[in-house]
Simulated assay, not measured.
Amino acid sequence: MVAYRRIDRLPDDSEEARMWLFGVARRVLANHRRGAVRRATIRLSYVDEPDKYSEVREAIEALPANQRELVQLVHWDGFSLREAAGIAGVSESTARGRYERARKRLHDSLRPAADAPVARLVPSGDAMAQPE
């Protein structure tokens, strides 16, 4: 509805329009998250199957919001870091700094046993983890 009401602001270029729509969606979701935190009444719980990715999700959720958003835009939504910066409304250099801090935090919080290969985030394509 927000995008429809602001359709006159939609860029003509299809790639810019896509990024604009993600920006609109980002702000709508941010408003929703703030409301959910204020209400603080609903908690999701996963039962039955053990979740092999819960540790990664928890580590990502523990990141500051501005770092978490960049990681999600790059690795879940498939945007380049430059595109994610545009969607987040920050400069490319600011996005790079936030992304690098997020990578370090995730590396530190997900550090495996000393002899296991270390997974690291790579901001290219759809590859999320590559052994070091």
Rank of each mutant, 00 (worst) to 15 (best):
D51P: 00
I60E: 07
L63G: 01
R6V: 03
D13T: 09
W20A: 01
D8Q: 15
D108S: 03
Y46L: 09
N31Y: 01
I87Y: 13
A62I: 03
L81K: 02
L73Y: 14
F79G: 08
P64D: 08
R27V: 05
E55L: 10
A84L: 06
A113K: 07
R82T: 12
E58G: 00
V118N: 00
T41V: 04
A127Y: 04
V74T: 06
R68K: 07
D8H: 13
S14Q: 11
V24H: 08
V90W: 08
R101K: 08
N66C: 01
E100I: 02
E16H: 04
Y46D: 06
R111H: 02
M19V: 13
A40Q: 10
S14T: 14
L73E: 01
V37D: 11
M19R: 09
G23C: 10
S93Q: 12
K52W: 01
F79L: 14
N31C: 04
R6D: 01
F22R: 07
D13N: 15
Y53C: 06
A62G: 08
H75F: 03
A102F: 00
S91D: 14
G23M: 03
V37A: 09
R68A: 08
A3H: 05
S14K: 14
L63R: 00
A36I: 04
P11C: 12
A17M: 10
R6A: 02
L10S: 11
I42Y: 03
Y46V: 13
F79R: 06
A62W: 05
L63Y: 02
R68N: 06
S54Q: 06
L29P: 00
G78Y: 03
R57S: 11
V90E: 06
A3L: 08
R33K: 10
H32K: 07
V37M: 02
P112I: 07
L106K: 11
